[in-house]
Design a binder for these strands. Sequence first.
RNA 1: GUGGGUGUGCCGGAGUGGUCAAACGGGACAGACUCAAAAUCUGUUGGUUCAUCCUUACCUAGGUUCGAAUCCUAGCACCCACACCA
Length: 820
Amino acid sequence: MADFNFGKIEKKWQKRWADEKTFYVSEDSKKKKFYSLEMFPYPSGYGLHMGHALNYTIGDIIARYKIMQGYNVLHPIGFDALGLPAENAAIKEGTHPQDYTRNSIKNFVMQQKRLGLTYDWARVVDTSDPSYYKWDQWLFLKMLEAGLAYQKESLVNWCPECKTVLANEQVVDGKCWRHEKTSVESKYLKQWFFKLTNYADELLDNLDNMNWPETTKQMQKHWIGKSYGTEIDFEVDGKKWPVFTTRPDTIYGVTFVVISPYHKELKRLVTAEHKTEVDNFLKKLKSVSEKDLIELEKEGAFTGSYALNPINHEKVPIYIGNFVVADYGSGMVMAVPAHDKRDYEFAKKYDIPMKIVIDPVDFELDDRSLTEAYTGEGTLINSEKFNGMENEKAKEEVTNFLKEKGLGKKSVQFRLKDWGISRQRYWGTPIPIIHCEKCGVVPVNYEDLPIKLPKDVKFGEGNPLLTNEKWINVKCPRCMGKAKRETDTMDTFVNSSWYFLRYADPNNDKEIFDKKKVLYWCPTDVYIGGAEHACMHLIYSRYYVKFLRDIELVNFDEPALRLFHQGMLHGEDGDKMSKSKGNVVNPLDTIEKYGADSLRLFLVSVASPDKDFDWSEKGIQGSFRFIRKVYDFFMNTKTGKTPLEIEIKLNKSIKDIGEYIENFDYRKATIELRELFEEMSKGNELGKKVLEDFLKLLAPFCPHTAEELWEKLGGKGLVSTSSWPEFKEIELSKGTGINMNEKVIENVLPLMKRLEDRGEKISKVHLYVLPFEIGELDKKKLEKGLGKEVFIYSVKDSMKLDPEDRAKKAKPGMPGIWFE
RNA sequence: GUGGGUGUGCCGGAGUGGUCAAACGGGACAGACUCAAAAUCUGUUGGUUCAUCCUUACCUAGGUUCGAAUCCUAGCACCCACACCA
């Protein structure tokens, strides 16, 4: 057996690719482009993990395939280098976030290069570099001009552990997304926002036409959460208090009103006698937030105030309720305990009366025996002139009635909120704003960008930027008077919302990017990353692209034509890989042990890349064995004549593997490769063409081994930049047709026998064949084999006799059958 | 609760109406090589059988069909995402 020194082979080809800049690209109007993108990593000090390796391998395989197909392929990588973890790690280890990040990136690059990826290393984007975040600031100013960036005092999610504000998307079940055990507190702070909601409708409507996974689209729809309903004005002390409802048909069933504990105007409703009660409840709320939100019981307190139901002028009590969300609708809801689950629970607890106004069609409701809210369909009762009306119709009618009287209107609500981008942290993009004593909020002048992060700050509690007086105190750009810089920095998701466009022109210091270059490369043809980004990053980047389109910097609507989510990679024990469990497998160690090609092959051959799977040491050994077998075979084989079966098999593989790669069905592609190799290694002589073609098919998966063997075989240039082998249409039908007559007889005979056993008489057999197979069937042979008269038709033949429409059952290799 | 998904042989996992006792990988077993082991190679891996036949099989129960792992209905189990949005 030949010595298989994969380490040496890998080094050799990685050096060659680097020296020759094999995968560096530039615009070429004569070539079709393909943009393969993996989500750029956050450069943590721990280095690459297996999930990264999987992510990059998936993108690299399709990139390599497309290169071989003749596309001009952009395949870049960069680093999402700003963000809280670097700052936290820096604090822990006593280093500066900048040094920490630089070291991490160095380490990442070294490891990424060992995987044999086709990255264009001249295009690396580092978001912590002022030459990048300058354009984040530039975009901020543009949004400010467009009225999409604004400041407001608002209720924010405050994580006491991070000592910063979190986006709604960063709050998971009431806990910080980074600290599973830390409850998020609510606080009012002045914050910068981007008006995501301006694009709510477009973000929602476009989804239907996008080639993204259905689950992701569904999740985004959910997240945007458009709902149609009615806004109704209730009256308290002569003032109007709007509530939003999707059930205006139940308005006669309102027996109380509930307001969110975080409602800004709450104080106005609390009467003197009930102040203590309300305060106690609010205090309790804070401690209750420790509990899981799901198990939270509905609780509240009476405010002492009453609201007037506009339709029947009934006075109903106003309660505070912990289940009412402050920033959805108006933060106040009308409660119909008989027909809403939450209202029912609340009413039961505080002994508030219920009133049935919807009568189910097939059974009776009784307000004394009511054990749960009835939320179904029915006809209206106890609703004055609307009595007897279908409730769906009543939704319309009640709304119209209220509108005529000026007491309400149709309304659309979104769950989607504006994006709070302010962070009270150091390691982020400074917001280019100056607060002047006289002029107020003043944007930094464009020519003063970038506002660089000062290196000299002290880390501890709160925002480190506050510790550098020199940086904070500036002159107002407008009046030259005393002013201070904004010390909030931007959410790291801002940086990652448009980086994929910067790859098209990463070193431009005159403008955000050369529009021509972006229009050539973008949008991304495939975007590969984890499903956990479905609602944050993937909505923000869609928003950014729409904004950039509206200021005429791009001409497309969506960032990525196709989106692919890789599965989660677990440890060998089936648990998540984690240091505490000790089941982490490091990509670099694996490369040392089995080689990068084995790792790449293993990662995509255990399961479909979009499914979760477990690491398996046995599995990677299997991949290693296969590669070594291939290596060994090529080192020993002699070129000669290729048997026909091998050519047919190869031809089929060329087609299938290509299709599998296009569909990210890499697992099947590797199976096909194994089968093909199995066939090939049976004989001892093969033509050079077949050997070359096999290496081409292998190259996207195991590029180093493929290059080495390609060289040994005397192939021209690099296999990586050779062309994908051609599929020949004719040979395939030859392949399936070889024994078609016998196959048909073999299948039809037992079928016929069964029918005849049952007493049916058969005199004629009609066969419906796919058009390209029609020459394969021999009427005489079939008649001899079947002992009946046989008729053969093409499925496309409009004159054929086919009363039971059996023609549509025809498949390659097997015609549709009808007995007469 | 809402939405999505899955259920296949010892395990992972293909398979969307006939070519399926069911790809491919792993494991197991047997044999070759070897003093021996590892590696490698060959074969076997539902039952019965020399073989054919037959029989039992793709969560369960029904159904459609000449024919079902594949289609339909109901149920069970598991997984993921979102979750008090009025």
